[in-house]
Amino acid sequence: MSRVRSLDVPPALTRWVTGIDVATAAGSPVVDVPDHATTLLLRMDRRELIVMGPRTRAAYHVGTPGRSCLRVRMRPGRAQALLGRPLRDLADRALPLRALPGLDVDRFAADPVAALVETVADRPEPAHRLDEAARLLTVVGVATTAARLHLSERRLHTLFTDGTGLSPKRFARIDRLRTVLAADTGRWSDIAATAGYYDQSHMTAEFRHFMGVPPAAFTAGHHPTPSPCTT
């Protein structure tokens, strides 16, 4: 596992990020679960800035002991605003950033919260339509989300692929999976119903697709063989 130290997110950043932490590898297996968010990552040893697109499959790996990464998990659409480009080609990719306008890498490493506050201070308020679309999508599905926002399904698809790097359907599938992963206890059938699956079989098939193993095996610690971390 990695040692993770979470940092407080001040009000000035809550419209931009959902979390900031520093993860230090301990040399033991780590699971990076699927995530529909884009993450800004700083390799502390190399002062290397990387943008991690949404992850559509679980990754099982072993990190180099002692290596630390600063991670900033962005809200939907915020990475697009921060990078100044659509995210449609970033799914399952890690791209080095030579620079991010307004962000000093050394200051980011020394005081990440203050550096981020300064970086976004002069940025325009991000549009909230994608926030509302993401909230609706996890409850009512693609067609109803588009109708409630007075968008065509094609326009909704573009909104998501540009703002998150994922189609609306895949975004919702990953969100349901993360609901299952966050469940502490309970019967699988109840967890499936709470997460919005048709039934337990549907949940199991989706879980295996994204995680590589069925839910019972995963919770019992029977994971795929980890590979060395290359990020």
Rank of each mutant, 00 (worst) to 15 (best):
W188E: 07
Q200N: 09
Y198D: 14
T164H: 00
L166C: 02
Y198G: 10
V17W: 00
G53W: 14
T219Q: 14
L116A: 04
A205D: 09
R107S: 12
A193W: 06
L181S: 04
V142D: 02
G212L: 04
L159W: 03
S2L: 02
R155Y: 07
A216S: 13
F171G: 02
A58C: 01
F218R: 08
R176N: 02
R57H: 14
F218S: 09
T185Y: 14
M211C: 13
R71A: 11
A147K: 10
T219F: 15
S6N: 12
V62C: 07
H202D: 15
C229S: 12
E125Q: 12
T230K: 14
V72T: 07
V142T: 14
F210E: 06
G141V: 01
Y198F: 07
V113T: 15
I50M: 15
R71C: 08
V62N: 05
I50A: 09
P76F: 02
F108I: 09
S189D: 15
L149M: 11
S68M: 09
G66A: 09
V139R: 05
L177I: 08
P11D: 13
L82N: 07
F108E: 08
A217F: 00
C69P: 00
I191N: 04
G53C: 12
V22E: 12
D184H: 15
P126N: 01
H209L: 14
R93W: 03
R170A: 06
V105L: 14
S28Q: 12
G102W: 04
A205K: 12
V180T: 08
T56Y: 04
L181C: 01
A172H: 03
L42A: 06
L83M: 13
L90E: 10
L95M: 14
L159A: 05
R187T: 13
E118S: 13
L83V: 10
E125M: 11
V9I: 10
H128T: 10
G102T: 04
T64F: 10
R47W: 01
T230N: 03
A183Y: 09
A99T: 13
F210Q: 00
L159T: 00
R154M: 12
A192G: 07
D199C: 06
T145I: 03
T138H: 04
L149T: 08
V140Y: 03
A133F: 01
F108S: 12
D184A: 15
V30S: 10
I191W: 09
H223D: 10
A133Q: 00
S201V: 08
E48Q: 15
D92M: 11
T39Q: 11
L70A: 08
S167H: 07
G66Y: 10
P11M: 08
S68R: 14
L149W: 08
A12W: 06
S2P: 09
V213Q: 12
A195P: 08
